[in-house]
Computed example of a mutant assay.
Amino acid sequence: MERLPQDGIFILTLVFAVSVRFQETNAIESHYCPGTETHFVDVLQRREIPCAEAKDPLLILQGWRLELGVSSLDNIGTKKCFVTRVVREEQKKAILVCCHGYEGVFCETRIENELSFFKPLVEKRSADSNNYGNRSMTTASPALEALDLSSRSYATCLSWSRDHFRTFDGMDFSFEGACTYTLAAGTDGTWDATLKRDNCDTLDTCYKKLELILGMDVVTADGTNVFINDKKLNSFPFLDNGISIKRVGDFTYLESGLGVLAKWDGSMMIELTVLAELRHSTLGLCGTFDDDPSNDMTTRSGEVAGNQIQFAASWEAPGPGEVCPPLSEVHPCIVNGNLMETAQSLCSVLELAEDFQACHSVVQTANQAS
């Protein structure tokens, strides 16, 4: 009998394997659910307003900018101008995804130890609203010496607005740096988080770029875009290799099997949380997480810095070709004195706008504080 050539044996083997897999697929139960694939597109908006309103603080906060050289008079003699802004709109496409709690090529495998997207943290916050680690940046902080930091099951570091930070152990500081910085990292080298402010010349374009190295994986949050190992995520939730990412409203949540969690809004707010197992093993701008705020300004060399500028400069982590400009010790309001009037006008919205009146009994305004 004539033998089959080698290529023929390979083809028969492949056909047999596909046949077996097809039978197995029909025998297993797939778990598909309706889902969405999200894309973001930049859209230019343009509207006509009275020119006198072009410097309205609310319009500026909303990102509107005057279109120069274009104006007209209406039928009653009011000068009209055009304002424009670029907004990022979300577009969704209906797709099928694995149901909650299942994974695999055919969504046939039940996940036994699925990550919880902050469920333990949410439960703890509900049970003990006075716990230090649960306070947001807008909550009045009691004296640090009155707190039992060692009882925390996790700690959260905050970065908000352009220049403000709060360490794992609760120390607040600010600096204006246009470089990439080590926000936090593990002393064992298993994880690392870097932060960079981008395009912060104007308020409406400023955002922070966050990069997380988690074991062998790299997660990059660049504005509202999220990348895993340079591959853009187009749909959520994502779960793979011990990393889970979920988007809820304006916020994106990340949780990893290394005890590192993150939350960001795609603009200027970032929360980085580490579980108690990482106590005494962190470094960077977020501090040492050892329940002692007095040594939070520990530099890269292991010494406690004498001031915030020295501390921040030690954690510069420039990328290839990046040059870090010197940090200024002069208050930005002095350096940019010509912008003081604009800043006061923008901030007056918090004092005068009806939308914020209900907040005044909880959050002090500048006038109340003085």
Rank of each mutant, 00 (worst) to 15 (best):
G133M: 07
G170Q: 13
C99N: 12
F16D: 00
E145F: 03
V248G: 01
I76P: 11
F106D: 14
G319C: 08
S159E: 01
E48M: 14
L339G: 02
V105A: 15
V83R: 03
G63P: 02
E271H: 09
T156V: 13
E89R: 10
L210Y: 08
S161A: 07
M297Q: 12
V219D: 06
E90Y: 04
Y102W: 15
R47W: 08
A146C: 02
S235F: 11
K124A: 08
P326T: 01
K246H: 15
V41M: 12
T38V: 15
D265A: 00
F227K: 04
D74V: 07
G306K: 06
E29Y: 01
M171P: 01
N241K: 14
A221Q: 06
E322N: 02
K79E: 15
Q23D: 02
T194W: 14
D355T: 06
G321N: 04
A312E: 02
F16G: 03
I60Q: 12
C359E: 05
F106A: 15
E53K: 14
G266A: 00
T180S: 15
P332S: 09
A146M: 07
P325V: 08
I213T: 09
G77C: 06
S174C: 02
P57Q: 14
V260W: 14
N234K: 06
S314C: 04
Q357D: 04
L195H: 15
L44N: 13
T180C: 05
D201E: 11
I270G: 10
T190R: 13
C206F: 13
P34F: 13
E354H: 11
D198I: 13
A127Q: 01
F175D: 07
V304N: 05
D163Q: 10
D204V: 04
D291F: 11
M269C: 02
N225I: 02
S328F: 02
S244T: 15
D240H: 10
F10R: 04
I228P: 03
I270S: 04
S19D: 01
T288E: 05
E67I: 10
F118K: 12
D291I: 01
L272C: 08
D296N: 08
F106L: 12
N336K: 05
R279S: 09
D188W: 03
V349Q: 14
N367P: 03
S141Q: 12
T139R: 07
H331C: 02
F311Q: 04
H280F: 13
S294F: 09
P320L: 05
S328E: 11
W315C: 05
D240S: 09
S141V: 02
E341S: 11
K196T: 09
L239T: 08
S30Q: 06
G306Y: 03
S126Y: 01
I60Y: 14
S30T: 00
F40I: 12
D292I: 04
D222E: 07
A27M: 05
A184C: 07
F356T: 09
G257D: 15
L144K: 02
D188C: 11
C333Q: 05
E112L: 14
D188P: 03
T190C: 05
P50A: 10
S361G: 09
F117T: 12
L212A: 11
A54F: 07
V335F: 06
G8W: 05
V87C: 04
R162W: 06
E271D: 05
V274F: 07
F238H: 14
L278H: 12
I270Y: 00
H280Y: 09
L195P: 15
N234P: 00
I9R: 07
K80L: 14
K209L: 12
R135E: 01
E176N: 10
T298F: 08
